[in-house]
């Protein structure tokens, strides 16, 4: 038998094995709903609180189960690698965490995710559970349009988890939590780049081919092609390319405050993310945009892809307070 250069046993079992390994590692934070790929807080359901459910295909770790815990999500639903989870699983998650205060579904804007989460919401509503949905679409690499699927949801999703989670933890209503989630979505923009493809274990081969000295600008978190290919450039140039697209879209004004996320896609070491951040900081400083907080690391990955994304979130007092509120999850601790 020939194995991929991956720590896996059986390509068809990666999600199951991962979930088991995760719950074994963090029994204080997570439990797995028996018979499902749903992970909920160890002490779920939390009475008197709006519950947050997110999820999507696997392969984006620490998204999404890494954000389950106090101050962020109540449940995360893991699909197969890069495949949206199914409605029945999402429904189980909703039912496991709802305490009568309603459930907010945080969905990334992909046809698959939308449809599966919508079906789950319909089923939950049929069972009398109050459900609201928000759709994250922060990726400026994709043009927005009402006639198409619109922009993708990528790393900015993590800010939605954090901020909506913080408000829910304070006891806000479903409507309020939905509102603040939509506010984050309105104010968050991202763009990524890939240097190498990634390999879905069950596919057994890289998601795309790319030349020795090329990079793919505007890559998605599933190895979907981006906006264009170009010659590999320096960290400073890459910061320029990605950030100028983001800034074009956001139209920030001097004096505005932002949170910055420099997100590694899985195969890019922390050292490089910090090198990128140097230039990102400088560009923002030159534009008189003040960086309130910078997050550097792996937040929303694409298996072992080398590359990164940059995310900006425009802040106001409410968002700052919620961003700074306590959180105790595997991948985000405040």
């Amino acid at each position: 038998m020939i194995f991929l250069k991956k720590l896996i046993n059986n390509p068809e079992q990666v999600v199951r094995d991962m979930i088991d390994g995760m719950v074994l590692a963090h029994p204080d934070k997570l439990k797995n709903l028996p018979g499902t790929n749903v992970m909920i807080r160890a002490h779920a359901p939390v009475q008197g609180k709006v519950a947050l459910v997110s999820g999507g295909g696997s392969g984006h770790e620490p998204s999404h189960a890494g954000y389950v815990g106090v101050g962020m999500l109540d449940a995360a639903v893991a699909g197969e690698v890069f495949t949206s989870p199914t409605p029945d699983q999402i429904l189980e998650a909703i039912k496991a965490v709802d305490t009568g205060n309603g459930v907010l579904l945080i969905i990334k804007n992909y046809s698959g995710d939308l449809m599966n989460f919508e079906m789950a919401a319909e089923l939950a509503e049929a069972e009398g559970i109050q459900v609201a949905k928000v759709v994250v679409n922060d990726d400026v690499a994709v043009e927005n349009s009402t006639y198409t699927t619109g922009r993708r949801g990528i790393a900015g999703t993590v800010f939605v988890h954090k901020i909506a989670g913080a408000l829910a933890e304070k006891g806000a209503s479903l409507e309020e939590v939905e509102q603040v989630a939509n506010k984050v979505i309105q104010h968050v923009r991202s763009m990524g780049v890939a240097f190498t493809p990634c390999t879905v274990p069950a596919a057994g081969k890289p998601s795309f081919e790319i030349g020795e000295t090329e990079m793919e600008i505007g890559i998605g978190i599933h190895g979907e092609p981006g906006t264009h290919r170009t010659a590999m450039a320096s960290a400073d140039e890459i910061a320029d390319i990605l950030l100028s697209r983001i800034l074009d879209d956001m139209k920030l004004s001097p004096g505005d405050q932002v949170a910055v996320m420099i997100n590694g896609l899985g195969g890019t070491p922390l050292m490089e993310l910090y090198i990128l951040n140097k230039k990102v900081s400088q560009i923002l400083k030159n534009k008189d945009i003040s960086v309130y907080n910078t997050y550097v690391g792996e937040y929303m990955t694409a298996i072992e892809m080398a590359g990164c994304s940059i995310t900006l979130l425009k802040l106001d007092d409410q968002l700052i307070e919620l961003l700074e509120a306590p959180a105790d999850t595997i991948a985000w601790k405040n």
């Binding site: 699909g79 197969e80 495949t83 199914t86 992909y110 698959g112 449809m115």
Partner: peptide, 12 residues
Amino acid sequence: LVSKVGGASGPL
């Protein structure tokens, strides 16, 4: 199909 496929093709 709905409960085993996922992605876009499952629900469709």
